[in-house]
Write a protein that binds this DNA or RNA. Structure first.
Lengths: 108, 108
DNA sequence: AACAATAATCGTAATATTGCAATATTAATA
DNA sequence: TATTAATATTGCAATATTACGATTATTGTT
């Protein structure tokens, strides 16, 4: 026990869950917001912006990248991270559909 | 170590993370989709729809409720669960803002 | 009141996540 | 080629999550 029963659910359900899970940590939300704030993708100082050690930040970046929420391009000895809006759009569309369906059924 | 450093982030960052985390499990996505499918909130047979035991489902429902994603009304000896679209809307608006900001900055 | 049905809670085992120190890797520069 | 800077990986301790059997409310029905 203890492990998520991934096999029992559909691919789409698992995909949405993976993306949502990646956003389910304040440090990763903070990273996303910082990438937005700098208003460009010439990054490399994310570590200095967060109250976490470098390996921890690196791990969070890895998870955001695995979920497809950010892209990372190598720029010399630094790495340029930026937001991949396609994946955010998947979530946005998914939630939009939920909201309109709920409003239609008009219950409770 | 091990525990999330909640204090170091803003309330909004934590709030978004809590909601996203609650959706970060395929069983909870499946519950949401089932609540949509039945097209009404006279539920109580969610357990039969999922490949999980009753206490496990009950726990997932509790987490969705804590995050504000569903509401639960007592209806006799059953409980009527339904989606709380307000919380979904918070997420949708948050992601919409991210997407438009990224498109504006037009990087990578 | 006894019984059945429904869902929550408790306790616990298995597994996953978080965070960091230490170390490794990679690439620019002196 | 050493040195430096930036990021990744490894290993591990602390904590959280997932899942479920057993049990406990709670409410409706007989």
């Amino acid at each position: 026990m203890g492990a998520t029963k991934t096999d029992h659910f559909t691919d789409q359900q698992n995909q949405i869950a993976i993306i949502a899970k990646a956003l389910g940590h304040p440090a990763r939300i903070a990273i996303i917001e910082y990438l937005l704030k700098v208003n460009a993708c010439i990054c490399g100082d994310i570590v200095n912006e967060l109250p976490l050690a470098q390996p921890t930040v690196s791990q969070h970046l890895k998870e955001l990248k695995n979920a497809g929420l950010i892209k990372g391009n190598i720029e010399g000895n630094a790495i340029c991270y930026c937001i991949d809006e396609k994946t955010f759009d998947v979530l946005k569309e998914y939630f939009s559909k939920i909201i309109t369906t709920v409003i239609k059924q008009n219950c409770c």
